[in-house]
């Protein structure tokens, strides 16, 4: 890929990831406003492409419109990567993104047509986060940060690679538990209990990155530091979501404060997953594992001998 192309495809991938983040927020607003079934038909809305945008229709059809935009961006990105990126695995990841976004659209349709079946809603919410991870990955893989040579060693135990991987998996599981809670499949306790594990892993990951990595590892330090901030914010938002839901449980209509807090909780959850994922991917890309350093040194000694 030429340098100019590389820059543009990277920013296009960033745009796709950002649009996906907005889509996740739009989805959370649909749930918050209890508007999931305000448009009973699919793929059209009230038999048209543009129904009157009022009440719950604004949120549900708005969600569909943003989803259509994300779908178009994803297909365009995949075609661009297929034509211009030399790395086969990146091209395949672009195709996987297209398959994921189409699957997500079909799940959205099933959700509407089958009147919100809970397992499908949870799967829809979880695949949204997974798709966000794919778009973030594509943005990273097309960036200069990914192309730069590796620098630092992954010293100490556990290493940042292991910790960040564990933290990312923990955050993803927590998002599934959150979706299960929000859609009534699970109670509150699994989500609260797992939040403790997530907080420990993410803060540990951030501490290790900030304490052990040199200042030259700007991206890694920034993403992991952001993850610490986000997980603390997320704990507060989690309490806020619980409290606002509790005090408004008998309300005649969805409470605006509850909608804002719970939607922000979903958005920060996605941002936390993104920060953890980017830390993980960069850690595996840029840090050399201790065993690799040892074997390299042994190899060097043999060569010298």
């Amino acid at each position: 890929m030429r340098q100019a192309d590389s820059v543009w495809v990277h920013w296009f991938a960033v745009l796709t990831a950002f649009a996906t983040f907005v889509l996740i927020i739009a989805g959370a607003l649909v749930v918050g406003h209890d508007a999931g079934l305000s448009v009973p038909d699919w793929p059209l809305s009230y038999g048209s492409l543009m129904p009157p945008m009022e009440g719950g229709i604004f949120y549900e059809h708005g969600h569909r419109m943003i989803a259509a935009l994300v779908g178009a961006l994803t297909i365009a990105l995949a075609i661009w990567l297929w034509q211009r990126d030399a790395r086969r695995w990146v091209r395949i990841l672009g195709v996987i993104a297209v398959v994921a976004v189409i699957t997500q659209a079909v799940l959205g349709g099933i959700t509407v047509l089958y009147l919100l079946p809970v397992p499908v809603r949870i799967f829809h919410a979880s695949l949204a986060q997974l798709f966000f991870c794919i778009t973030l990955g594509l943005a990273l893989f097309t960036s200069r940060a990914w192309a730069a040579d590796s620098a630092a060693d992954d010293r100490g135990f556990p290493g940042l690679r292991l910790l960040s991987c564990a933290a990312t998996c923990a955050v993803f599981i927590q998002l599934i538990l959150g979706a299960a809670l929000r859609h009534g499949a699970l109670g509150l306790m699994p989500h609260i209990a797992w939040a403790a594990a997530v907080a420990v892993l993410v803060i540990w990951m951030g501490y290790v990155a900030l304490a052990r990595l040199p200042r030259s590892e700007t991206h890694l330090r920034w993403f992991s530091g952001s993850a610490i901030f986000l997980v603390i914010l997320q704990l507060g938002l989690g309490y806020g979501s619980y409290y606002t839901r509790l005090v408004t449980r008998d309300a005649s209509q969805p409470d605006q404060a509850m909608i804002h807090v719970t939607t922000t909780h979903v958005a920060v959850g996605a941002a936390l997953l993104g920060a953890s994922l980017l830390t993980t991917l960069l850690a595996f890309r840029r840090l050399r594992h201790r065993s690799e350093v040892v074997s390299f040194n042994r190899g060097a000694q043999k060569t010298a001998a």
């Binding site: 209890d34 508007a35 079934l37 305000s38 009022e54 009440g55 719950g56 229709i57 005649s252 969805p254």
Partner: peptide, 8 residues
């Protein structure tokens, strides 16, 4: 009515 969530 999901369009107007107060309608029950």
């Amino acid at each position: 009515c999901n369009v107007h969530p107060w309608m029950k």
